[in-house]
């Protein structure tokens, strides 16, 4: 469980900032708190929130969040052989997959230590839930949160995840292309669309590399 603690600390800060930003986006205290509890997927939460913050609709927000979650599909497939039990038990165990615990539990030989997966996820879930409650409750008491610089937390967190994703030339080009497409579309498309459109860059994975 101790391995999950540094991520749990950052997760707490991130979740506090989510609670605060969600309140500013029009969520009630209960709504902002419950989001962290039931969704527990930071990148999806922030992707959805950033879509509605700029005025996008529910469908665009859900799509952005789900596309962001698409990586859990790949991670779930990877851990599948290491999880015992029937469909319900396997589905429940799959919920424990978050980026950092998935990486920590990876033995590097195609198998996963599932107890390490659950153990490192647990402290993160606890701080994630607490963080969103704290952020939601005290967000307005902080006064002008813009002044506190809390909006700098989530880009740094995602940047750190992004850096771990840049394993080879293909992923670096995908990241470069995705950023470029999103930025280029900002002035000419409705809110939320730039991030969705950027996901099409991942289709470059269809091109088989000729090496």
């Amino acid at each position: 469980m101790r391995l999950g603690v540094p991520f749990a600390v950052v997760g707490f800060l991130l979740s506090v900032s989510f609670g605060v930003l969600a309140r500013q986006a029009g969520f009630s205290v209960a709504q902002a708190s419950v989001t962290g509890m039931v969704v527990f997927a930071g990148s999806a939460q922030f992707a959805a929130l950033s879509v509605i913050t700029v005025g996008g609709g529910i469908v665009a927000a859900l799509t952005a969040g789900s596309l962001m979650n698409a990586r859990f599909l790949a991670m779930g497939i990877a851990v599948a052989p290491s999880l015992p039990g029937g469909p319900v038990k396997r589905a429940a165990q799959g919920q424990a997959v978050v980026d950092s615990s998935w990486a920590l539990a990876n033995r590097g030989d195609g198998t996963f230590n599932r107890w390490l997966l659950f153990g490192t996820t647990l402290p993160q879930y606890v701080t994630w839930t607490l963080g969103s409650i704290v952020g939601a409750t005290f967000g307005n008491a902080l006064g002008d949160t813009h002044r506190l610089g809390l909006d700098a937390i989530y880009p740094v967190f995602f940047l750190s995840l992004l850096i771990t994703e840049l394993r080879d030339a293909t992923s670096r080009w995908a990241a470069f292309g995705g950023g470029l497409v999103a930025l280029a579309l900002v002035p000419v498309s409705p809110p939320g669309v730039p991030i969705l459109a950027a996901s099409t860059v991942a289709l470059m994975g269809l091109v088989r590399r000729s090496r």
């Binding site: 922030f46 992707a47 992923s171 995908a174 991942a202 994975g205």
Partner: peptide, 25 residues
Amino acid sequence: VTVLMAPTLLSALVVTSLLAAGRSW
């Protein structure tokens, strides 16, 4: 494709949160 989804979207999210506000850079 699913493996490339994460770097692509994370980059898009980081870039837009840093360099854009609403519909302008």
